[in-house]
Design a protein around this nucleic acid. Structure first.
Length: 301
DNA sequence: AACCGTCACAACCGCATGCGA
DNA sequence: CTCGCATGCGGTTGTGACGGT
């Protein structure tokens, strides 16, 4: 279901995202947020256009994405709203927590559209046979019940990054989530990344609560991420080092089998981040304040 | 086993919109 | 008001999977 990787004339990659690219994007957005999609790939060490990064994050990598089978209730909402609004996919998707406009749109074109058309045809046929009183309106639209396999997975098949029900009970309070009791001390930038990678299979996302717009709800977390954010004013050598680190840090620390890594629920623990000395050591406030790009508060995701 | 048509969906593209200078 | 840039949105395409013949 993926495209063959390719490369366009400008040297930017197109097509299927590799696991390594995903990890780079996740690591970068997780840590620094999406301060500027166009600039992001450069700092994240990705040979992708910003648009592609944004799309990949919003439609696939975001932690609150719900993937897999649409429930009957979700399908009814889509059908009803499409009837009223037409192809306003983003608005329709907004009514379906965890669903993206792209996914809703795809589901409509591949499944619901045909089903609704058949239903309409059936109604027309019935009306011819039974007269004008047979129509019941939108609410009567027949929605095919989910298959047995779908029923057995009543929570919906979630993305590799949200594949457990843990997301439905995310706690955002870093002060109360130090369950891991781990206090890690980071000696430099890359140790943070290494530590991040060590926890990437555990409970990372469980510490973050993200609203419908993808914004962090926990102020403490936002402040932390503000403080550790990387300035584009870094020297080129710093940027280069960062690129290398971002490209390799997870490889060096995560599960050796990529398939296994991506098959795991994307949940890890960030409580260590809140307690780390890294955030008070690695942040140059003066340098930071010089950057016009960062005048606005960070918006993670 | 090979071929072919269809399905599902990730990803791309172009246009629209919002916003700050 | 205009312009340029960043982001959002919806249409469309490309590709692997899968089932039927």
């Amino acid at each position: 279901m993926a495209r063959t990787p390719s490369c366009d004339k400008s040297g930017l990659r197109k097509g299927t995202w590799t696991a390594e690219e995903d990890r780079k994007l996740i690591a970068y957005v997780t840590r620094y947020g999406c301060w500027n999609w166009r600039q992001l790939p450069k700092f994240a060490g990705l040979a992708r256009c910003g648009k592609s990064c944004r799309l990949r994050w919003l439609n696939y990598l975001r932690p609150d994405i719900k993937r897999g089978h649409f429930t009957q209730e979700e399908e009814e909402i889509i059908i009803r709203m499409h009837k009223n609004l037409g192809n306003r996919w983003s608005i329709i998707a907004a009514e379906l927590p965890g669903r993206t406009d792209n996914e809703v749109k795809n589901h409509w074109h591949t499944s619901l559209k045909r089903r609704v058309q058949q239903n309409e045809e059936a109604k027309v046929s019935n009306s011819k046979n039974e007269g004008p009183t047979s129509g019941n309106g939108i609410g009567s639209l027949q929605v095919t019940p989910p298959a047995t396999s779908q029923i057995s997975d009543s929570t919906g098949a979630l993305s590799p990054f949200s594949s457990s029900s843990e997301f439905s009970c995310i706690s955002s309070d870093l002060n109360t989530t130090s369950s891991s009791n781990e206090k890690l001390v980071f000696e430099d930038d890359f140790d943070f990344l290494d530590a991040f990678a060590e926890h990437v299979n555990e409970k990372f996302w469980s510490e973050l609560q993200i609203d419908a717009n993808g914004a962090l709800q926990n102020q403490d977390t936002t402040q932390i991420l503000d403080a550790c954010a990387l300035s584009p004013n870094q020297s080129s050598s710093q940027s280069l080092a960062l690129d290398n680190a971002l490209g390799n840090f997870l490889d060096a620390n995560t599960d050796p089998t990529i398939d296994n890594f991506w098959g795991q629920p994307y949940v890890t623990d960030t409580s260590f981040a809140a307690e780390s000395e890294y955030f008070s050591i690695g942040y140059d406030a003066d340098l930071w304040s010089q950057s016009d790009l960062y005048d606005e508060p960070f918006c993670l995701f």
